[in-house]
Every structure is written in structure tokens, then in C-alpha cells.
């Protein structure tokens, strides 16, 4: 660990907070409203036509209550991904920020952890606000519902770590668009708006391999409850994403900036 970690990710996080006041707040705020608009249009609008659907435990729930946890997982993902991809891409390729950081006594793991911490804080902020909306609209049916917030932190951490790792391989803006190209269908098809059982068996296996599906299953289990032990698999999935994402990111930073 010596050489890659100096115990100072907080110094990198501090930098992000200092830079935050010059950020584009409009973009930051839209990240919260996007899932909210989905909830209002699909949950209330479309939900009126659909009526009740089958919840994770087999009981019927309102359509809005069914999609709200999925949108919560999506907002955690989006918050983390925005920062860990586009912002990191700019810092890596144009701002030369990491060139400056590696010349100090920081290690590459400090940089990776500090940057990812900021990305997941953004995911956490969106998720917390969205959870508050869910409570206000009476969409949380389980006593475990409040655990959606720490769970969102785990989901955001996984996406932030892997997002930064993937971004480290990107060289052009065109390549960055691929990330959006992958995230949008993942958002639409991860059993977000209907139960996974609508898919044939083969497609279900494919969907279950996607990270967002695990985020959605985790949130749905906590918000509509009662949560079963299968949620531990979802947590493990994100645990693996976090470890691999961090490891790859630290290695890539070394490759890119310490040649």
C-alpha cells in the first residue's frame, strides 16, 4: 500500500468542496429533478391507467410505489456517474489536476478515493432528497425504508468507482458518449418500470447481471419490504464493483500520470 496510499483522501475531497462554489449549480440541481419528473409523469400519470402492480413480496402496490425505489437507485447512480465520468474526464484530460496531485506526497489511491468520495456524496444528496419525496408521497411501505439512504450510498460508491475506472480509458468526447449510450438502456430495461418477470428466462438472466438491477432490487426490498436475505447478494455485487473500481482506478492513475 505504501506508495499508493498516504491516508489523505480527505485532502482531495477538500479540493472538490473548495471548487464546488464555482460549479454550475443548474446542472447539479437538474440531477435531482430528473428522477422526480419520471416519478410524477410515470408514477402518477401512467400509474393512474395501470392501477396496482405486484410488489417484491407478491402483494399489490400502487404503480408509483413500485417505480419510486427504482428511480431512487437510478438517482444515486446518476449522481455518482455524472461526477465520476464527465467531471473526472475533464480533470484527467484537460485540467491536468492529477498531474499536480501526483507530484505531491499523495498516492494514487488517495486521489481515487477522494474523487470517488465526492461523486458518491453527490449521489447520496440526490438519494436523500428523493427518499424524502417518497416519504412525503406515502410511497415507503416498510419500516426499513430509511435504510434506502445508506443503501444509496453503497450503490453510488459502486457506480462512482467503476465510472472513474472506465473514464480513465476514455480519450475523446465521442468515447464518453458511449457511457450515456449504455446507461440509458440500462435505466429503461433493469425492471425499473415493470417487474422482471415480464421477461423470458434468458433475458432475465441478462438483466440480473446488470448493476442497476441490483440497485433497484435492493431499494425495492427496503422500501416495500420486508427485506429478505437475497438483498445481501445485491450488496455483495456492489462490494465487488467498489473494490474492482478502486483498484483499477488507482492503477490507471499511475499508468497515466506516473509514466
Amino acid at each position: 500500500m505504501r506508495g499508493v496510499y498516504a491516508g489523505r483522501p480527505h485532502a482531495v475531497l477538500h479540493r472538490s468542496f473548495v471548487a464546488l462554489k464555482t460549479s454550475n449549480w443548474f446542472i447539479i440541481v437538474t440531477g435531482f429533478f430528473e428522477p422526480l419528473f419520471y416519478l410524477l409523469s410515470f408514477g402518477l400519470g401512467l400509474g393512474g391507467l395501470i392501477g396496482a402492480v405486484t410488489g417484491p413480496d407478491g402483494r399489490p402496490v400502487s404503480y408509483a410505489a413500485f417505480i419510486a425505489p427504482a428511480l431512487l437507485a437510478t438517482s444515486a447512480m446518476n449522481g455518482a456517474i455524472y461526477d465520476a465520468t464527465w467531471n473526472i474526464f475533464f480533470k484527467m484530460r484537460f485540467a491536468k489536476l492529477y498531474d499536480a496531485m501526483v507530484a505531491t506526497s499523495l498516492g494514487t489511491l488517495d486521489i481515487a478515493l477522494g474523487e470517488i468520495a465526492f461523486a458518491l456524496l453527490r449521489g447520496l444528496a440526490y438519494a436523500t432528497a428523493f427518499t424524502a419525496v417518497m416519504y412525503a408521497m406515502g410511497l415507503v411501505h416498510s419500516a426499513w425504508g430509511l435504510l434506502c439512504i445508506p443503501a444509496a450510498l453503497v450503490v453510488a460508491f459502486g457506480f462512482a468507482a467503476c465510472g472513474m475506472a472506465v473514464t480513465s480509458y476514455m480519450k475523446t468526447f465521442q468515447q464518453m458518449d458511449w457511457i450515456t449510450f449504455i446507461l440509458l438502456p440500462m435505466f429503461l430495461f433493469s425492471a425499473t418500470f415493470y417487474p422482471i418477470t415480464v421477461y423470458p428466462e434468458a433475458i432475465q438472466i441478462l438483466v440480473r447481471a446488470l448493476p442497476l438491477w441490483h440497485g433497484i432490487a435492493l431499494m425495492r426490498g427496503l422500501a416495500l419490504g420486508p427485506p429478505g436475505p437475497e438483498l445481501l447478494w445485491d450488496l455483495l455485487y456492489f462490494g465487488v464493483m467498489i473494490v474492482i473500481g478502486l483498484f483499477v482506478t488507482a492503477r490507471r492513475l499511475e499508468r497515466l500520470f506516473m509514466r
Binding site: 471548487a19 485540467a95 499536480a100
Partner: peptide, 13 residues
């Protein structure tokens, strides 16, 4: 103390 060939100051702050 390192002064690199190309300035890499933090432009956002």
C-alpha cells in the same frame, strides 16, 4: 517542490 514545464494550477479555484 515541483514546477512543471506546463502550468498545472487548479483553474477552478
Amino acid at each position: 517542490g515541483v514546477v512543471p514545464q506546463e502550468d498545472n494550477l487548479d483553474l477552478e479555484i
